[in-house]
Structures are given as C-alpha cells and as structure tokens.
C-alpha cells in the first residue's frame, strides 16, 4: 500500500481526481458526457507528442522540437497530397511519420555524434525547421475546403455515438483509440524491451550504460527518431481532426508537452518516467486548460497556468530526486 502511495502515478492520479471534482463543483457542465468526450478527444494530439517527449526525457535528453517537426511533416505531406491528388489515408500517415522520423534523426545526429546539449540541439532544429517551412515551403493555411476530404472523414470516425437529451449528438472520437494504442506500444517498448530498459539505464547513468554493454548510440537514435516519428504522425492527425492545416500552428506548445511529461512524474534529469504517468499528466493539463475555458479565463492566463504547472512539477521532481540522491 505504501509502495503504491509512493508511486508518482498514484499521486498525480489523486491530484487529477481532486481537480476533476473541484472543476465539477465549480461548473457542473464539466461533468457532462459531452464535455468528458471532448476532453478525451483533446488528449489525443498532446498525448501522442508527449509520448515522444517522454521517451527522450527518460533517456536523459530533452526534445523541444516536437511541435515544429509535427507541423513541418504535416504541411509537406498535405501539400504533396494536394499536388498529386492522392486519395488514400494510410500512405500520407506513413509519409508524415517518416518525415518526422528523419527530422528526429537530425536531432540524434547532433546529440550523439556531435555531442551537443539536447536542449540547444532541439531548440535549434525546431527553430530551423519552422523557419525553413515558413520561408521555403509556404505560409498559407489550407482550410476545410482544400483539405483532403478522406483525412477529415477518417478523423471524424466516432467510437461511441449517442443522442443527448436535448437532441444533439454526442460522440467519442475514435482517434482516442489510436492514442491509447500508441501509448500501449510505447509502454511495451519501455517496460518490456531491452532498448526500453536501455533508455532508463542511459538516463540513469550514461557511462554505466555504456559499460554494461548497451549501445548508447542506438538508444539515442532510437529515442529521438521515435519522438520525431510520433511528432510527424501527430501533426497529420492534428490537422485531420481540426480541418485546418496551418504551418504556424502549435508553436509554443512544447511547453505543454514538457509540462505534461514532468507532471506525470518523469525526471527532467532522465531515468524516470512512465507512460501511465505521462497520460495522466496530459489529462491533467488538458483538464486545466479546459476548466479555465469553462470558467471563462482568457487564453493568456492559461499560459500562466501552464508555466506554473511546469515550474511546480519540476520543483517537486527535483526535490524528490535530490532526496533520493541523499538517501
């Protein structure tokens, strides 16, 4: 029991529960099924991207290029689809994911081969890719009318569809399933594969991991490429769900991703973190943003809240790590 209480997942779950109850008491609308469904839907994109950030963070690195890679991969893919009048769904996702993966490789190259600090590398590549995207590829929004229809249809697939008492339709997006499936895959990788344990080992002590026989080069490449790939996938899914491909979108949301991952108990110094924790962290973040909207708090103040969450969560984990180190 005490072991369960000590787990950061338990702590964040309890905090989350409290937050749900409080927001529900402040505004009963928050507890309506329609709102819960839309909350879950809002988890999808942040969640998928956060999984990548989690993997990199466990390995002892950090990835703040994710939203920029997502937008670049998405935008190039959509433009390609429009140029070729491509009608499929599967291939575009593969392409967008592959672009993200390649960009992730760029991060891995600088981090491992050039031995640069991950924060600087991903700040640089993120900014560079965004600049390149807007300067060379294009800046115009692709709106509902021009968007490939099959993507929108695909992203509108409902898992549950029901009639609300007032006659409106309530539906749970099937994209939630994709998120959960990806989360299960990442969880499986982290908990049950050697490369996953290698991520933890490397994040705990890079030199010791090398000595133990882990291939730290492969692990580093794996982490950044996986993060990039998830970003590329999430980028295309995002515009399919929002019906608008804006290359400037998602800028600044790297902070949300870091917030969610750190809030979920991952250590910013590496070696600690879990998929369940991150999912709870993402939910927490989405809930806070959602509650602030319901409570009519302006979006600028939402950014203040997110910043506060990052600082608080980092302070708590730093304190925990320091205490563990002292023991």
């Amino acid at each position: 029991m005490s072991a369960l209480l000590k787990r950061s997942e338990t702590v964040i779950f309890l905090v989350l529960l409290a937050a749900v109850i409080i927001t529900g008491l402040l505004n009963p609308a928050a507890w309506q099924l329609s709102n819960i469904f839309s909350l879950l839907r809002a988890n999808v994109i942040t969640g998928i991207m956060a999984l990548g950030v989690l993997v990199v963070m466990i390995s002892g690195g950090i990835d703040i290029s994710v939203p920029y890679f997502a937008m670049a991969a998405m935008y190039v893919t959509i433009l390609g689809m429009l140029k070729t009048d491509y009608a499929g769904i599967f291939l575009p996702f593969v392409v967008s994911t592959a672009i993200g993966l390649a960009l992730g490789g760029l991060n891995a190259f600088f981090v491992h081969t050039v031995r640069m600090i991950p924060m600087i590398v991903t700040l640089g590549t993120g900014t560079m890719v965004r600049g390149f995207l807007l300067g060379v590829i294009g800046t115009s929004n692709i709106n509902r009318d021009q968007m490939p229809g099959q993507l929108i249809d695909f992203a509108s697939t409902a898992l549950v569809k029901m009639q609300a008492p007032d006659g409106s339709t309530i539906e749970l997006s099937a994209m939630v399933l994709i998120y959960v499936a990806l989360a299960l895959v990442v969880h499986f990788i982290l908990a049950h594969t050697m490369i996953g344990r290698g991520l933890y080992a490397m994040g705990g002590d890079r030199e010791a991991a090398r000595r133990a026989g882990f291939n730290v080069r492969r692990i580093t490449w794996f982490a950044y490429c996986l993060s990039g790939a998830l970003a590329g996938f999430a980028g295309l899914l995002y515009v399919s769900m929002s019906w608008l491909a804006n290359p400037r979108d998602l800028a600044g949301t790297e902070m949300d991703l870091l917030a969610a991952v750190v809030l979920g108990g991952a250590s910013i110094f590496g070696g600690r973190g879990s998929v369940l924790g991150t999912m709870l962290g993402v939910f927490m973040l989405v809930l806070v943003n959602n509650s602030l909207i319901i409570l009519h708090v302006s979006t600028t103040w939402q950014r203040v809240a997110v910043g506060l969450i990052v600082i608080t969560a980092c302070a708590v984990t730093a304190w925990r790590d320091r205490r563990a180190a002292a023991a």
Partner: peptide
C-alpha cells in the same frame, strides 16, 4: 569505483 550501477533501477 563508482560501481557503474543504475540508482534509478
């Protein structure tokens, strides 16, 4: 000397 162990595991 530093054992090369993983404190987080």
């Amino acid at each position: 000397q530093d054992f090369s162990l993983f404190g987080n595991l």
